[in-house]
Design a binder for these strands. Structure first.
Lengths: 344, 344
DNA sequence: TTGAAAGCGCTAACAG
DNA sequence: CTGTTAGCGCTTTCAA
């Protein structure tokens, strides 16, 4: 693995020699630690610049921090996720921290390996997005390192959580559809594979709220759920399944934009028009939803704000906060042309 | 940062004590190194399992490898990127390696910082996807660690490269459109900001090939390029710009699906039909392109194969290969309903 | 085949 | 305010 002629890295010893000071002095300057004279600081910084010194992360990790924040995403296809990263980056800009992303995959097992990998690499903070692992597994990790969980509606003493108020979001959607005269409203859900305590997952809350609102409006008999996944394929398959019902639904509420895109495709393929025959609603308000030819009614859960909040909480925990906090972000309905009055 | 009561990690010393052997022995077992008796191997493995030992990555990094492969993506919104990761993961499955992803951002400066961050963290291998930094900067990095570059058509002695045969892909698109009778074919390009040697970047090659084919067919006067970016916004803005031309183009070839989605939106917004008034073509053949209501003609560059190739090359280099190799992946045209005969 | 011991580059007591 | 020094957990000579 050693490249031929691979140059030795510059170390703090080199910097110290160059500046005519001790390695301790260099270390202190690097960490902005207490007790360095301005003169020394200047000399050290000059030497650092001259030698092009960069701290060796592994060596730092042996004693202190890695200045690394690990983020576990279930997958990278959801266009909503980059917004979260933008928010985090905004918060850590100006700090020495670096965000690294790993994919958790679709099962608790692969996700567990991703978590282990980050723990082994001594990240200073961990963000779990829509985790599949059990709450107790997450708490175990949170005891080892500062952890924030995004998605599930959980109050844990061990980690912070940030979540969209999914119940409120779904209520907005349902009020919108019911207000347009729809009664046969179907839902596309994301299967809660493998997660032991699923009652707090965002997908479960969305599905449960859908059912509750249907019942509250005397539409219990019209409840129709296709449980697939929050992906294009999931939305497509789920919609095909729902459209064969007789009478067929006049509105389809997909739990995520990605699924709604698949849903739109299936509706068109069935020779039906949107919203003339079927209204379609998504969730996430991704950029694609706003495009003129898609114009998908969706729920904006403001990923940027979520990301900012996550970033801030993580930095706070890294700095020593041990009390746990929860944040709920209020969603907003963004009505577009994919929803209209129910057909007569 | 230390969590209260944070449990000390199990180390090889613990394992060694538990198994009644030396730490050297444990280390050797962990690395499948030469010179351990089966009996000892077994005892050590048993102790590892019992104690739930996991190697400390930073400590390993001080002497040997980190078992980490770093990937730098310009952004995470391009739905083509996850395919690449799938291919890599397939190759490294079964090894101890872990892929970590960092975002390089839209400028050479932010991308440079991302590279530095991975170098500081001693990754064992680096994949640069569609890099913005100069070739010489990449070669500098490649001298430090095994590097593969995906996207640009460059032959470097320092790193391996994998690229789509973009010229061939564009020729397929152009032949398709010209075969349908189009003459006023416009192109949406991605601005090559900041990259010193841009002649090898995939976006430049796509744009250059477009121009060349136009000239070869006596359509030099019809060349129309809107240089924005390979994003929804870029495609939207670029198309609006192109549609005001008089006479307007009958076909728009966007350099990426993401841009093509924006293009479709702009065409619809202008009250024009696809492909009746304007044909639209993308590049990447993402999942969304295949959806029934989008049905975008596109070019499949097989991200999965690219990812597999990248993964294999990286492992080879980590294992010691120092000669440089180049791979070109042949693209295929996937005609769909977004293209049709040119209007009379 | 096995183990003792010397670092890798950095941080954090602790002394001066 | 500054420097000396002892490790962090692992890999790797080098002897036994």
């Amino acid at each position: 693995m050693a490249q031929p002629g691979r140059p030795r890295r510059t170390t703090i010893a080199d910097v110290a020699r160059h500046a005519g000071v001790s390695t301790t002095a260099v270390s202190k300057v690097l960490r902005n630690a207490y007790g360095v004279s301005p003169a020394m600081r200047e000399r050290v910084n000059a030497a650092i610049k001259e030698l092009g010194y960069r701290p060796h992360a592994a060596a730092r990790a042996m004693r202190g921090r890695t200045y690394t924040i690990g983020v576990v995403f279930p997958d990278l296809r959801n266009p909503f996720f980059p917004d979260i990263l933008d928010g985090i980056d905004e918060q850590i800009a100006g700090t020495e921290y670096q965000v690294v992303i790993v994919r958790g995959g679709a099962s608790p097992r692969t996700e567990g390996r991703a978590i282990d990998a980050l723990v082994d690499r001594q990240v200073d903070g961990l963000l779990m997005v829509a985790p599949l692992n059990t709450r107790s597994r997450l708490e175990e990790v949170a005891r080892i390192l500062p952890t924030v969980v995004l998605g599930p509606h959980e109050k844990s003493a061990a980690y912070d959580s940030v979540a969209d108020d999914d119940a409120a979001g779904v209520e907005l959607v349902m009020a919108h559809l019911i207000g347009l005269g729809h009664r046969r409203i179907a839902h596309i859900a994301h299967g809660d594979i493998g997660r032991a305590r699923s009652s707090t997952s965002l997908q479960t809350i969305r599905a449960q709220t859908y059912k509750r609102v249907m019942r509250e409006h005397g539409l219990a008999d019209e409840i129709a759920v296709a449980t697939t996944s929050y992906t294009e394929e999931g939305g497509y398959e789920g919609t095909r399944e729902l459209l064969v019902r007789d009478p067929r639904p006049t509105a389809i509420f997909a739990g995520a934009d990605l699924a709604a895109f698949g849903s739109l495709a299936a509706v068109h393929e069935a020779g039906l028009s949107v919203p003339g025959d079927v209204s379609v609603v998504g969730y996430d308000d991704t950029r694609m939803a706003a495009l003129a030819n898609i114009s998908l009614t969706s729920v904006d859960q403001d990923g940027l704000t979520m990301g900012r909040t996550v970033g801030r909480l993580l930095l706070e925990r890294i700095e020593g906060r041990t009390t746990s906090v929860q944040f709920a972000v209020s969603p907003a309905l963004v009505p577009r042309r994919s929803t209209g009055r129910a057909p007569a």
